[in-house]
């Protein structure tokens, strides 16, 4: 989610709310006989407000489960999640008077710290990384389809290699006919030259198939595989350059396609890494948020009792 000018109202609203909360908190903290407490009227107010904000932020998950519900735009919910979630942390700090308290409340505060920090990190990542990805990964695809696309790439590479080898071998059979004709008319001298050319093409074809089986297919089929030679752009370029020397120019376009397939695979690997970074924080943020809401509810009930 891009945090841009369209967030101005949310930003101003949150800043004003925080300023008001702080302005109320400071004299309260200074005048309270034994310092600010969660159980005081104002402390409870901060606690209730903070918990409601947390609850709203937590409802985003539910809202996403039911996108057809007509309860506000998804974008508004997302912004509310971001800004209310951000605001809830200082409110809860005001609620506890910047103390982490006892066993349960300490656990809650640490959960909240992790949730809040991971949320901020996530928001920052969501702000910067999509643009970075667009610029860096022109061949990106749907993350969940990377495995499938990788298989397609391997298949495509196999077809290209087969096509190239067939072309090379087709040339060999045509040359064989030429050789026989030339041998009959002009003796054996020219036949030797043609025979050595035929042998070379046969070798290149074998090498290309070997390259496909030993280097390219394993690289394309395995996720990641950065350590392999094709995973490194420069090394891959050198390998393809060697084949360019060996192959006739009319088959260079096939090599370009193969090189392009490897480049796409590298980009898919990079996309996969970036995706894990871009979304990995959710594996911390969401489960801890649920735990926080659950224990927060327990704390609310217990606090009212005691």
């Amino acid at each position: 989610m891009l945090i841009d000018r369209t967030h101005r109202k949310w930003f101003v609203g949150s800043a004003v709310a925080l300023a008001v909360a702080t302005a109320v908190y400071i004299p309260y903290a200074l005048r309270a006989p034994q310092g600010p407490r969660g159980g005081s009227a104002l402390g409870l107010t901060y606690g209730i407000a903070g918990f409601l904000f947390m609850l709203f932020a937590g409802l985003l998950g539910l809202r996403k489960k039911f996108p057809v519900w007509r309860i506000g735009r998804a974008q508004s919910w997302m912004r509310g999640h971001l800004w209310f979630g951000l605001l809830s942390f200082p409110l809860i700090l005001f609620h506890g008077g910047f103390h982490f308290g006892g066993t349960l409340t300490r656990m809650l505060m640490w959960l909240f710290v992790f949730v809040w920090v991971s949320g901020i990190l996530g928001a920052a990542l969501q702000h910067f990384m999509p643009r970075f990805q667009t610029a860096q990964l022109p061949m990106e695809t749907i993350y969940e389809q990377i495995d499938r696309v990788r298989g397609q790439l391997a298949e495509e590479a196999g077809q290209l290699v087969e096509e190239t080898c067939s072309a090379l071998e087709g040339e060999v059979s045509r040359a064989s006919e030429r050789q026989r004709a030339m041998s009959a008319s002009a003796g054996t001298q020219g036949g030797l030259t043609v025979a050595s050319g035929l042998q070379a093409n046969q070798q290149v074809s074998t090498q290309l198939r070997q390259f496909l089986d030993e280097e390219m297919r394993p690289y394309l089929e395995r996720a990641g595989a950065h350590a392999m030679r094709l995973g490194q752009t420069t090394q891959a370029q050198k390998m393809f350059q060697q084949f360019r020397v060996l192959l006739p120019p009319e088959l260079h376009s096939n090599l370009d396609d193969l090189e392009n397939i490897c480049e796409e695979k590298r980009q898919l690997d990079k996309q996969s890494r970036l995706h894990k970074i871009l979304h990995g924080w959710l594996l911390v943020h969401i489960p801890l948020s649920y735990a926080l809401l659950l224990l927060g509810a327990v704390h609310a009930v217990v606090a009212l009792k005691f």
């Binding site: 656990m107 959960l111 959710l282 594996l283 969401i286 489960p287 801890l288 649920y290 735990a291 659950l294 224990l295």
Partner: peptide, 14 residues
Amino acid sequence: WRFWLSVAVPVIAL
């Protein structure tokens, strides 16, 4: 992973 963690972590907390 997200789903199971979202189930497991609250359960662990509880």
